[in-house]
């Protein structure tokens, strides 16, 4: 474990906590894409299949349980909670995430480290995570209303992935532990997807103006 990875995990944890708190306290999910949340629940469900078979560490298991619990409860809130669901703008959140899931599944079947169920599912979860933010970014472009909690959520998510890239570099240099190139590429693609958001987010923060994404 190194500082980059620990802070990456903490940033990731913060992003889901921020989101859950927002939904739970103000009982609203305005501006949040349910499609992205469903994709994240899928990411964790397919990545943590080994939670009971391969024990890595207490930390690892606890974090997996937290990510599974938070992602599924966010989806539950947005779908079934009688008050929260009313603030979900399904007219705007129309991204067909099936068009993201299918290519990821096909790619995972073709490009993977080892053709076993668990390995293919793990690779699939990497590809889905790389594109999971797209529905949320599309929704932000459409609704233009980035309330600062949603902005913080996306920012923290991007920061976590960027920290993970530093973690992979660190591990490569120190532990001679190379992360599989699949992990590298999908992590890089994911971080790049945030790049433009980061640009506008930091600019708006610097000029202390409301965050506006270009049309």
């Amino acid at each position: 474990m190194n500082i980059f990875r620990l802070s990456g995990d903490m940033t990731h944890l913060m992003s889901v906590i921020v989101l859950l708190l927002k939904i739970h306290t103000i009982k609203s999910c305005a501006g949040i894409s349910l499609k992205t949340q469903e994709l994240y629940a899928l990411v964790f469900a397919t990545r943590y299949l080994d939670i009971f078979t391969d024990f890595v560490s207490v930390y690892n298991t606890i974090m997996k349980l937290i990510f599974l619990a938070t992602s599924f409860s966010i989806v539950w809130y947005m779908r079934h909670h009688k008050i929260v669901r009313r603030s979900y703008d399904k007219e705007q959140d129309t991204f067909r995430h099936l068009f993201l899931i299918l290519p990821c599944l096909i790619l995972a079947l073709v490009v993977n480290e080892k053709f076993t169920f668990k390995e293919v599912m793990w690779t699939f979860s990497l590809y889905v995570e790389a594109v999971a933010i797209l529905p949320q970014l599309v929704l932000l472009q459409r609704t233009k209303n980035i309330d600062n909690l949603t902005g913080q959520y996306v920012f923290l998510l991007g920061a976590y992935r960027a920290l993970y890239i530093l973690n992979w570099i660190y591990r490569y240099l120190t532990e001679k532990h190379f992360v599989h190139w699949i992990t590298w590429i999908s992590g890089l693609v994911q971080t790049l997807l945030y790049a433009d958001f980061f640009y506008y987010y930091i600019n708006s923060w610097k000029n202390n103006v409301r965050l506006q994404l270009p049309a």
Binding site: D9, R47, D50, S57, M63, F67, W122, H177, V179
Partner: peptide
């Protein structure tokens, strides 16, 4: 072929 490493990252 080396055993695929257990994915120790989240």
């Amino acid at each position: 072929v080396d055993q695929p490493q257990i994915h120790d990252e989240l």
